[in-house]
Write a protein that binds this DNA or RNA. Structure first.
Length: 316
RNA sequence: CGCGGGGUGGAGCAGCUGGCAGCUCGUUGGGCUCAUAACCCAAAGGUCACGAGGUUCGAAUCCCGUCCCCGCAA
């Protein structure tokens, strides 16, 4: 089949690579415009664009696809459109352009975890399983009928990054399979059960404060779910501390501590904080105006008194 | 010229109202302990980002220029 691929970041790139390897033909790649990255604001092309160029596939980058993309897409001779983390909402007009319409790879077992950050939310909520769904895109949000689903367990070692990689690979295979099925006409679309639907919004920086009144396990999950972006934060003596990793630890405290109080801060043991239940060690952190480092390194240069209360960071 | 922080032994930092380069950790060697997230002793390791720059009797510290790193904002 002739496929128009729409996707932007790494997760999409995994799928794109697989499609290119398959017997199907990727006739065009659509991705978000190049974005200025970093302090230097260097224009950086999305990963999918780079791959497309390597394979001499035409690339299209629309500012607003529903407005400036329609005519172009219509002019491309394709059977189907495939989306994988594209980053823009498609209009009904676009959904109708190709014979088979649009199919999407979503990183959850729908109808659970609709929304843009299923991997992150699955981690934050402490799910034991996650998966990939191939669905037909309708006008609504991740609500189309399901073609294929595959689930996999989440382990304590998993991070947003590792899951993205694994799910990207699973999703890539499923998508190729889906294209085969569609081409052969042997497939069945199953409507989603709206009663079982759950939806989670985009993550926000304003909601990145760690709530230490939760259990150490919940803090651990929150931190790893946020680790890629926007990164969990807490306020240490007036300074923002980004936390990339917090692991539950057992600790013998000399006295009772409140949730959010520093229980131990030595360069041997690390930075240990009391939670609503149990303790966590903030072992991979980034102090304000500084680089990412281990807690033990941080404590070599900075002394934090035991009993210091970690507060919320205020965002303006 | 978006705003701000910073470049000091392997790591993280202090020193910056000029005057012998310091702290915590790591490393190496030795000691103690049934044992340790423990402790004791000793050692190695730095042209203080760069500039045959400026000021000075003297600069890590003050001035000038350059480069690099980081946070915020996007």
């Amino acid at each position: 089949m002739k496929v128009i691929f729409m996707g932007t970041p790494h997760y999409g790139a995994i799928v794109l690579n697989k499609l290119i390897e398959s017997k199907h033909q990727v006739v065009a790649v659509v991705c978000q415009p190049d974005k200025p990255v970093g302090r230097k604001q260097i224009l950086t092309p999305p990963e999918t664009k780079v791959i497309a160029k390597e394979h001499n596939i035409p690339v299209y980058q629309f500012n607003k696809i529903r407005i400036d993309g329609v005519e172009t897409l219509k002019s491309i001779d394709a059977d189907i459109m495939v989306t994988a983390a594209y980053g823009q909402i498609l209009s009904q007009e676009i959904l109708d352009i190709t014979k088979f319409g649009v199919y999407n790879v979503h990183a959850s077992v729908l109808p659970k975890y609709r929304g843009s950050s299923p991997i992150q939310w699955s981690l934050i909520n402490g799910e034991k399983e996650i998966g990939v769904t191939i669905l037909k895109t309708l006008a609504g949000l991740d609500n189309g009928p399901i073609l294929l689903t595959e689930s996999m367990p989440i382990s304590d070692d998993d991070t947003v990054e590792s899951l993205m990689q694994k799910l990207g690979e699973i999703g890539a295979e499923l998508m190729v399979k889906a294209l085969d099925m569609l081409e052969n006409g042997k497939y069945e679309l199953k409507e989603q059960n709206e009663d079982e639907m759950t939806y989670f919004p985009m993550l926000k920086k304003e909601k990145s404060n760690i709530d230490f009144s939760k259990t150490s396990r919940e803090v651990f999950n929150f931190v790893r779910g946020m680790a890629e972006w926007p990164v969990a934060v807490t306020n240490v003596c007036g300074n923002v501390l980004k936390v990339y990793s917090a692991t539950p630890v057992s600790y013998l405290a000399e006295r009772e501590y409140e949730a959010g109080e520093v229980v131990c801060a030595t360069s041997k043991l690390g930075l240990i904080v009391k939670c609503g239940e149990g303790y966590v060690r903030l072992n991979d952190i980034q102090p304000q105006s500084s680089k990412r480092m281990k807690d033990t390194d941080f404590l070599n240069g900075k002394k934090i008194p035991v009993g210091t209360k970690l507060l919320d960071v205020e965002f303006n």
